[in-house]
Computed example of a mutant assay.
Amino acid sequence: MCEFIHALPNVDPNVLSNQLSRLELAGDGTARSRTPPVDEFPDLNFHPGRGRGAPFDPSRNRFANAVKRPMPPPGQQHTMVTGQRFVATQGSRNRFGPGGAASFGSVRGPPPAPMPRPSPRIKLRPPTLLPTLPTGAALNEMYLEARQGAIRLGQARNACLARAADAWRRGDGAAAKRFSREANVLNERMSAEGAEAASNLVRQRRAQAQEAIQNRGDWSDDPGDRAIKGKECANGLGVVMGIASASSLGPEGNSLSPGERTEVLLDLHMLHANEGTDVLEDFLMALERDSFLGLAYIIVGEDRHTGSQDPSRGASRFRLATGVKQFLARYNYPWSEGGGCICVDPATHM
């Protein structure tokens, strides 16, 4: 369901776009070839407000620019996996294509499998204060309600693309171009609707988590736990789960400060990979600005209801969990995972 709105009709948009871009209508209504080519079909990685190939903006942090810029020519970027540590050498920042994690597939060959790595500062562990959050039918209903506008626009866009393809096969270049332009407009509107839907979903899930955390009872004996549990954090994207008891963390617990035992939550359920990495970027940078020393827990689910990463379905079909882990690996964040939840040390990264 989460991948439905990205489905394209059974045509090759690249071939059709290239052919249409070479057409020029004569006065008698006939079509003839021309150059240079113009991209008429929607760029599915287009971001309203930023455009394609946006220039460097110092007001955006390094992550924002990294996920929106093209890969460098061979020789300017070198990455390797050593044991469980992802190493990115000079030139590896600010080199992703449009669309964040979804654009990893545009690089020739599959990306290296994201490998967890331990934190040199603090032991990564499963959450001790994570309450039960709504899932299943309630989640699906929330998804459909938030994305119904984008879904309708996606259906209309796909219909225009199919009509453009049919017109091209009939030799009607004028109609093909007209439907192509309509599809492009609908795609831009769908992108804007999708971004708004993702923002609404994050806020709704945060509100649900806040309620569950505030009603979880006294799971911690730390005197500061009750005062901060359920509070918003990271510019309202996440919520503080509380301060874990020192005794619940084993021998290491007594050596950790209350700040290091604090656990925060970001729920990215129902987001697509590029949406999730955009939100995660803002979340982690906000925690860094707040000098947060605890652990962050990112809910990504177990990918039971999302599309596969089959290359034949398109390079952008990265699942949310894969996109998040690729993002963390790119910036050497210490992380571990289990049960649809990724633990991150936001205070330690490259």
Rank of each mutant, 00 (worst) to 15 (best):
I122Y: 04
L44G: 09
S119Y: 04
N65Y: 02
C343V: 13
R32H: 14
P120H: 00
E24W: 11
H269Y: 14
G154T: 13
G236N: 08
Q76T: 03
D290L: 10
P127V: 02
F63C: 00
A146M: 09
L129D: 04
R152Y: 04
Q208I: 07
P37T: 11
F41Y: 13
F318Q: 09
V81E: 08
A54L: 13
G53P: 07
R157T: 13
Q90C: 13
L23P: 06
R152V: 07
R95S: 12
R121C: 09
D172Q: 05
D278E: 14
L287W: 02
D166W: 09
Q19E: 14
L328R: 00
R93T: 10
K68M: 13
E260D: 09
E337K: 09
R317Q: 13
N14E: 11
Q214E: 09
V264K: 01
E193N: 13
P55T: 06
H269I: 14
R170M: 10
S245Y: 03
E232F: 03
N254L: 10
I342L: 03
N200T: 13
S248R: 06
L161D: 03
G338W: 03
P111T: 06
T262F: 07
F104A: 01
I122C: 05
R170A: 14
E260R: 14
V239T: 15
N10E: 14
P48L: 10
